[in-house]
Design a protein around this nucleic acid. Structure first.
Lengths: 205, 205
DNA sequence: GTCGATTTGTTCGTATGTATC
DNA sequence: TGATACATACGAACAAATCGA
C-alpha cells in the first residue's frame, strides 16, 4: 500500500514559499538587482514563519534566482538556463558520467561552431594555448558568445566547467592535431569542420 | 570600496552543511534509497543547529539529491544530470526564451535520432498521435531511451517538458508533414532525416 | 484499531555579525 | 562613534505523518 502512494499530496511549505516569492517577483515586477522585502516582511506578507521563508530563499539562492548579502538584504539575480546539480555542490563525478557530460559538451560545441560558420561574423582573436583541449575549449567559449542563441553557450560552459573541475582533460587523448581544426575553421570549411568535430564524440581514449 | 569586496568571505553555514552532507553520503557510502541520519543526529554530528541542517537538506532536496518524507526520514535520491531552474519552481517563461529552449531541444532530438539510426536497434512501437509535435516528441522520447548515453534523453526531456508546460507547441507551425519524417526514419535514411530535422530549428512560425 | 515512539514540518524567541548612515 | 536595519544562526516547542507493537 505504501508504495502505491506516490500522489505527492499537498506541497510543502517551503515549496509554496518559493512559488509565492517567485510570483511576487513576477507580479511586482522586480528586475534583477532590485531588493526583495526583508525576511521578516516576507514572513508576514506570506503568513509563514521566517524559517520557512529562509528555506525558500536558500533554494532560490542556489538556483540563482536570488542573492542575499548579510546586513544588506536579498536581491533578484539572473539564473542560468541550465544547471548541473553536481556542479552546484562541487560533487565529484565518476568517470563514466564524465564521459556522458563530455558528449553533451561536444554536441554543444558542434552546434556553436556550425552556427558561427554559417554566420557572417569574423573570428574573434584568440591566443594559441599549450594543449589541444585548451585551444578547443577556448575557441568554443569565444564562438559561443557570438551566436544568436545564448543557451548553447550556457550549456557548453556548464558542462565544460564541470569537466575541468573534475580534471577530465588531463591525460585525455586528442583525436587529431589542433592545426587541422584550426585551419578548417579559418577557411570556414563547414564539411571538414563537421567531420573533425564528429571525431571528438567517438571514444578514442 | 564595497564593490571591490567580491572575495566571497567565509562560506555560509548551509553551504558548509550541504557540502558535508554530500561528503557523508560519498564516504559512507550511501546508495539511492538508503536513509540518512535524522536531522537531529546530523545537527549534532555536524555541530550546527537543526535549522541549518534543514536549509542544507532543502537545497539538496530541490536538486534531487535527497528526498524527505514526514514521519519517515530523509533518503538518498538520484539527481538528473541537468535541470532547468525555472522548471523546478514552475516559473512562466517569456516566448523569446522558450524559443531558445526549443532550439536546444531540437539539437538534442537531432543527436538522439542520429545516434539511434546509426545503431542496429529496432524502432520501438509507437501510436500515431493527432498533431505533428505530439508525434515528434513521442518519437524522440522513446528513441532517447534506446541510445547509449542517457544524458541526451535527460536533457531533451527537461527541455521538452518545459516547453509543454508553457504551451509552446500550441499553435506552433509545423515545417513539413509528419509522414515525411516518419518514413525517412522508417527507411533509416540518415541524410533525409538530418535534412528534415535541420528544418525544425529554423524559425518558420 | 489504538497507542506510543520516531521523524520531519513549522513556528517563535533570542542572540550575533555585518553593512549603511 | 553610535544607531539602525538586516541577514545569520541557534534552540526550544509543538504539529503532523509514519511505523510497529
Amino acid at each position: 500500500m505504501n508504495t502505491n502512494k506516490h500522489i505527492k499530496s499537498i506541497p510543502r511549505m517551503f515549496e509554496q514559499v518559493t512559488q509565492q516569492i517567485v510570483d511576487h517577483i513576477d507580479s511586482t515586477p522586480l528586475e534583477p538587482g532590485q531588493k526583495l522585502p526583508t525576511e521578516r516582511q516576507l514572513s508576514e506578507l506570506l503568513q509563514v514563519s521566517r524559517s520557512s521563508v529562509r528555506e525558500g530563499i536558500k533554494v532560490l539562492e542556489l538556483l540563482r534566482f536570488l542573492e542575499s548579502k548579510q546586513g544588506e538584504g536579498t536581491f533578484v539575480a539572473s539564473p542560468q538556463p541550465y544547471i548541473i546539480p553536481s556542479r552546484v555542490i562541487n560533487k565529484r563525478i565518476p568517470t563514466l558520467e564524465l564521459d556522458h557530460y563530455f558528449q553533451v559538451a561536444v554536441m554543444c560545441a558542434k552546434t556553436i561552431v556550425i552556427s558561427f560558420l554559417k554566420s557572417e561574423e569574423f573570428l574573434p582573436d584568440h591566443q594559441e594555448r599549450d594543449s589541444f583541449w585548451e585551444n578547443f575549449c577556448q575557441l568554443v567559449s569565444s564562438l559561443g558568445k557570438e551566436i544568436p542563441n545564448p543557451y548553447f553557450h550556457s550549456l557548453w560552459e556548464e558542462s565544460y566547467q564541470l569537466l575541468l573541475a573534475n580534471h577530465f582533460f588531463e591525460g585525455k587523448q586528442q583525436p587529431f592535431e589542433w592545426s587541422e581544426l584550426d585551419t578548417a575553421i579559418q577557411k570556414r570549411d563547414l564539411q571538414e569542420t563537421i567531420y573533425l568535430l564528429d571525431l571528438l564524440g567517438i571514444e578514442g581514449a
